[in-house]
Design a binder for these strands. Sequence first.
DNA 1: CGAGAAGTTGAAGCGTGTCAAATGCAGTGG
DNA 2: CCACTGCATTTGACACGCTTCAACTTCTCG
Lengths: 206, 206
Amino acid sequence: MREGDKPKDVHLILSGWACRYKQLEDGRRQVVSFFLPGDICDLNVFILKEMDHSIGTITSVTIADLTRQFFDEIGAGYPRIATAFWWESLVNAAIQREWTMNLGQRTASERIAHLLCEIFFRLRLAGLTHGEACDFPLTQSDLADATGLSKVHVNRTLQELRSSNLIVLKGKTLVVPDLERLMSAGLFNANYLHMDREGRQLDANE
Amino acid sequence: MREGDKPKDVHLILSGWACRYKQLEDGRRQVVSFFLPGDICDLNVFILKEMDHSIGTITSVTIADLTRQFFDEIGAGYPRIATAFWWESLVNAAIQREWTMNLGQRTASERIAHLLCEIFFRLRLAGLTHGEACDFPLTQSDLADATGLSKVHVNRTLQELRSSNLIVLKGKTLVVPDLERLMSAGLFNANYLHMDREGRQLDANE
DNA sequence: CGAGAAGTTGAAGCGTGTCAAATGCAGTGG
DNA sequence: CCACTGCATTTGACACGCTTCAACTTCTCG
């Protein structure tokens, strides 16, 4: 999906990773968010006229298409689910603010540590971690585009994190031996993910 | 209003400027958005449990408090206004994405030029510009906190923009003699502000 | 087994940050 | 009306984090 498109449906990611990104004419590219399994791609589709960013995949992805009609039905008949959609869009905005903070104020190693924490927390919330480990399909280039660093520097920073035993990262798997330490290395505070919401897991029949 | 608060009302800014910001323990501070007259402060208040950021004023500000009850009535009786609130929160998210891009990919002068363009466009949309001029109460420190630059460097960058005749900025007034040129200096594309919305100005009785 | 993608390494340069001091400017009280 | 005060802006010199470029190595997968 590309900037300027006028898509018809909203996409729900069933499996795989994707990302939102924006590009300047000269090719500079910024990943502005990651979509993990269970995330919804673009709730804004029905209100904003056209996409102000592009969406791309990190891995292969399976999606469900949600139509406008589906949303109208939800809005009419299932207020708690409608609220959950509101919630998801507000949390996305909060994450985006935190990324702004990340790029504006944190050093390279803090930035990367922070991003890894965020991803780990989100995956854990979705039940997709296995103890201290999780899948991690991002390349160093992807990390570079997301953190606003060059890929060479991402490489060096990752080595730093590895040699401090903050992470074990190889072969598309991330292990976080001591989440507390990684969090403090990234000045990470999970507030902004708003995981405390009552009724976070909503059933349609609640 | 501070991070961690649980505010009761939503605030509408009638006059004056304010900002959202986040802070790290060691004092580093990032402004993540500006509120201009007509902007709504925190639509998320009713859904998210607590603030993940703080709100501060730039100038003195007059606000209107909007209660939860007010929003419930809007939601029930005025669907076009309800949609307008949706729209405003989605545009805010789009702006936040653009800021991510700004901090991640643009150079110092591009960043500042871009931010000035954004503010100028938003003020113009609100009818608050006078030809090529507008009020501009931000200090160089504010600009530094918003762009992730040091204030010394902001100062030097502003001088650069001034000496290229891209801006005239003094005494809390900004003049943009050639908006097109400033836009291209900031690689600014107004897409993300979604100003094209049909029915952008909504009347309650429509 | 080969080819392209991803990761790693080194050296050099530059954009920004930091520190510290000077200047300008607006509001306040005598 | 002027001296005083405190904040905002400006300037210079120097340091450093990160980028760039270019080559090399290691993985991955057909």
